[in-house]
Design a protein around this nucleic acid. Structure first.
Length: 604
RNA sequence: GCCCAUAUGGCUCAGGGGUAGAGCACUUCCUUGGUAAGGAAGAGGUCGUGAGUUCAAGUCUCACUAUGGGCUCCA
């Protein structure tokens, strides 16, 4: 057996570890390196090593499951003591001690019946056993430590050196929030030290891009303990950025035949009863009472748009009718899930509802998908699409759901757009396509969404006059491109690390006059830019020139422009490149042309 | 909501049972400078809130509030 061999890969892509393979295995060998399969084995064994260390330090510890996940591994366990970040180092130290004992990792099999006897005193292992259908189970053993495990594992502990325990967390047994909470420790492992170092460095870099950090630094947005959790404040710079995004998107909507509308912020509870929100979404809604009547603050904008549609009689000639609104909504998110701008309790959706005939669904959905793609391309986002099907809590009958779901699939399939399926992940009123974007550290967030809805039109008796003068019910397509300005700007901030493209940058130009004699020239230029809708600032405070240039450079603005004697005289500007620290001169006219050209790049 | 952790001037953070510290930012003055920190002086905090332990609490304990890492990933 080669020194480097840690397992085999069979024809079906299953990993067979050396303990299971026997002497004459002909499957493809897996070498000890950073390949996907190799890491899977290494990380799984590291999870076991961690469990062994935990058992040594906390003899009363009981273990549940310890799988390999996208980003490393974890182990869930129960222990009487509290385990905090500090304890991770102690556990790591113990793991290193155990490695020195040079244990082999051995495997043996027993019947399920024997296993039930063996683990009779360990309710967590019994819980694991109850989920295994097989009649024979395997046990892996290293030194004194034994664990019920499917494998695969490395042959011996000597393969495990380059790991790091990254965080301690709580996790519900089996993911059920009504079940007991276990302690979970996450870790990461690689075949070599360099890869581990590179990974840790990458995570550190990612943290520097965190929108909460940059948002505070750049004074984009804030939260306030006295005002309440999950309620963002937009500071002047953040508001400017947001306003520019709103404007770009506003024009894009008009171009695509949408009409702006607005509904009220609160509506009578009966409206929400009719819509089904009261029953299906009530726990997320804020309710209040006015003059003895119950009202609900809107968590979605659909109801308002429906009322507007119904206000006047509609003909088939009016369809598809596209209403859009930057709708402020409130949702009672659980306190523990709030996360910077990415999950808040008040946010503004770029929401639209398309009322159309059933035969128009496919083309409308496709148009929305193209709209999404244009926006994502503008900002250089990679995104994934996911079709979500009927959830447990839902209204409407199965046949209707089936038709709508198929409609979404057809729209994507027909145009070769890749998607995944999230079974049971749909909204309570219909299936949907979700558009997901990844944040700085690889977490995926749902942004845009396209939802087909046969239910609300029926509940609110929405109708239009068809060609044959009969009354027909339109289909509603709920859709958002950004999802919400809050979340989208949060991700945008991480994506650009605060260096926003010109067309949305809160401050687009900073002028640094060399002396106060040149401040007037800078102010005049600022005014000129403002007339074109470009935001600039003049740094003419009582600081040294070097200081002011340094301060300007640190603002992450697209243009830092120096103006002095020479520029005033020649009606020019000196533009400084932040990265190369080089500068070039333009006439005022050339400068204006360049800036307006850059503004145009934000057109979609 | 649950588990673990954190909370010190506007920001970033140090300190730690005996009457609050730094850097940046801010204010005033000097300096008017051609490309990443000129100089001086000054103001600003009942150490998240409320209880408790103690002769004494930012420091220890508890509760609350807020923030952070998690809570599908099935031996």
């Amino acid at each position: 057996m080669s020194e480097n061999l840690i397992g085999y890969l069979d024809d079906q892509g299953n990993i067979i570890d050396t303990q299971s393979a026997g002497e004459n295995c002909h499957a493809a060998p897996i070498a000890f390196d950073n390949s996907e399969k190799s890491l899977e084995i290494i990380r799984h064994s590291t999870a076991h090593l961690m469990a062994q260390a935990i058992k040594a330090l906390y003899p009363d510890a009981q273990f549940f499951v310890g799988p390999v996940v996208d980003e490393g591994f974890y182990y869930d366990f129960r222990v009487n003591e509290k385990i905090g970040e500090e304890d991770l180092k102690t556990i790591e130290k113990k793991m290193k001690e155990l490695i020195k004992k040079k244990y082999k990792i051995e495997k043996y099999e027993i019947s399920k019946e024997e296993a039930l006897k063996k683990f009779a005193h360990d309710d967590l292992k019994l819980a694991v056993l109850s989920r295994i259908p097989d009649e024979t189970v395997s046990i892996y053993k290293q030194g004194e430590f034994e664990d019920l495990c499917r494998g695969p594992h490395v042959p011996a502990l000597r393969f495990l050196h380059n790991f790091k325990l990254t965080r301690v967390a709580g996790a519900y047994l089996g993911g059920d929030e009504h079940a007991e909470m276990l302690t979970r420790i996450y870790g990461i492992a690689f075949a070599d030290k360099e890869s581990l170092k590179a990974y840790l460095k990458m995570m550190e870099e990612a943290k520097k891009r965190d929108h909460r950090k940059i948002g505070t630094e750049m004074e984009l947005f804030m939260f306030n303990e006295e005002s309440g959790a999950g309620l963002p404040f937009w500071m002047p710079k953040g508001a400017k950025l947001r306003y520019k995004l709103e404007q770009i998107l506003h024009k894009a909507h008009l171009t695509r035949g949408y009409e702006p509308v607005r509904g009220p912020e609160i509506l009578k509870a009966d409206m929400w009863r009719t819509s089904g929100h009261y029953a299906c979404y009530g726990e997320n809604m804020y309710l209040t009472e006015i003059d003895g009547q119950e009202y609900g603050i809107k968590p979605m904008n659909c109801i308002g748009h429906i009322q507007i549609f119904k206000q006047t009689q509609k003909s088939y000639r009016d369809l598809p009718l596209r209403y859009y609104e930057y709708g402020v909504v409130h949702r009672h998110e659980k306190s523990g899930v709030l996360h910077g701008l990415l999950r808040v309790r008040e946010f503004t959706q770029d929401d639209a509802h398309i009322f159309c005939a059933p035969e128009q669904i496919a083309s409308e959905v496709l148009e929305v998908v193209e709209f999404v793609d244009a926006v994502m391309k503008l900002f250089g986002f990679d995104y994934t699409m996911e079709i979500s099907t009927k959830p447990d809590k839902a209204i409407g009958d199965d046949a209707v759901w089936e038709t709508a779901t198929q409609g979404l699939k057809d729209a994507l399939k027909g145009n070769d757009l890749p998607y995944t399926i999230d079974e049971g992940g749909g909204a309570f009123y219909g299936p949907k396509i979700d558009i997901k974007i990844t944040d700085a550290i690889g977490r995926k967030w749902q942004c845009g969404t396209i939802q087909v809805d046969f239910n609300l039109p029926e509940r609110f008796e929405v109708e239009y006059v068809a060609e044959d003068n009969s009354r027909k019910q339109p289909v509603m397509i709920h859709r958002a491109i950004l999802g919400s300005f809050e979340r989208f700007i949060g991700i945008l901030t991480e994506h650009y690390a605060g260096e926003f493209p010109f067309f949305i940058a809160p401050i687009q130009v900073i002028f640094v006059p060399i002396s106060e004699n040149h401040a007037g020239y800078a102010q005049a230029l600022k005014k000129k830019l403002l007339a074109e809708g470009i935001d600039s600032e003049v740094y003419d405070r009582n600081d040294s020139l070097n200081k002011r240039i340094r301060t300007a450079e640190k603002q992450r603005v697209p243009y830092v422009v120096i103006v002095g004697e020479e520029e005033v005289e020649n009606h020019t500007v000196a533009i400084r490149n932040r990265r190369t620290r080089e500068q070039y001169n333009l006439t005022q006219d050339e400068f204006m042309v360049e800036l307006t050209k850059q503004l145009q790049e934000g057109k979609i």
